[in-house]
């Protein structure tokens, strides 16, 4: 479904992604794990067109999408949940969700079908329905994360890019959010690329994973393989190899 070929991305002079190659098959959940500054977010921003790659190719369903602006990418069915949630704080929950369907409104889709999808989002996150009229900025971090995911879903994406949905949230809420992601995959067949620092939770949910270090992919494999890998265990899962 999605294929990155030898992607190189720069921030000015900083070489943030070095020859990154990865793929996602339809219906998969794939996770990117790595330390701060490894380039996880940059990969997502490159795919969504926010920071265009300087070389390499991004293919979505075998179409070139490398140099497209973000709005075209969303049109094709890729939605990003940006890092740090970035809900529109002065706007209500409902307005935030409506904005998620911005392009569908522009394309002249009926309000009824968009309403139906909002009901779907409320089914996934009942809390949001209770807070429909509340300003997004007055909600807790977990609620804002749910809103950010709901907002991205309003675009009816085929591929969802999630940037650290567990950031700064209580373990119980992280569990809840991951449960919903799993449900999304099973019920809607949504493909998900998940960036996480919480490697343990991410690998439990995902089918496969890539490990990123200073802009390079250093390891890839199924979640089970990665969880068993000694280096991954030591560096990302907090298990020491045992002192002598």
């Amino acid at each position: 479904m999605l294929r990155l070929k030898k992607i190189n991305t720069y921030y000015g002079k900083v070489h943030a992604l070095k020859n990154v190659t990865l793929f996602l098959a339809e219906g998969e959940i794939v996770t990117l794990i790595g330390a701060n500054g490894a380039g996880k977010t940059t990969i997502l921003n490159t795919i969504s067109g926010v920071i265009p790659a300087s070389s390499g190719e991004v293919l979505f369903n075998d179409c070139q999408v490398t140099a497209l602006p973000p709005d075209r990418i969303v049109r094709l069915g890729i939605s990003q949940v940006p890092e740090g949630r970035q809900v529109f704080k002065p706007l209500s929950v409902e307005d935030n969700l409506d904005l998620g369907a911005y392009l569908r409104y522009i394309n002249g889709e009926s309000k009824v079908s968009i309403r139906e999808d909002m009901v779907q989002v409320f089914n996934l996150f009942p809390l949001l329905q209770e807070r429909r009229k509340q300003l997004a900025g007055t909600m807790s971090g977990g609620e804002q994360q749910m809103l950010a995911i709901g907002r991205a879903l309003m675009a009816k994406p085929k591929l969802l890019l999630l940037d650290e949905p567990s950031m700064g949230l209580a373990p119980l809420i992280v569990q809840e959010i991951f449960r919903v992601l799993n449900q999304l995959r099973q019920e809607n067949g949504t493909t998900i690329l998940l960036v996480e620092q919480n490697a343990r939770a991410a690998l439990k949910l995902a089918d496969r994973g890539y490990v990123l270090e200073t802009g390079k992919i250093i390891l890839e494999g199924s979640s089970v393989e990665l969880m068993e890998n000694a280096d991954v265990k030591r560096a990302y899962l907090g298990k020491d190899r045992g002192l002598p």
Binding site: S48, V50, P69, P70, D71, V74, R75, S79, Q80, P82, Q86, V87, F88, K89, P90, L91, D95, D98, L99, G100, Y102, L103, R151, A152, A155
Partner: peptide, 19 residues
């Protein structure tokens, strides 16, 4: 709504498909 979204966070507005 889109204007206020751009006001609040341009990146978030962009990834929702707002030009």
């Amino acid at each position: 709504r889109a204007l206020r979204a751009v006001h609040d966070s341009e990146v978030a507005a962009q990834v929702l498909g707002i030009n």
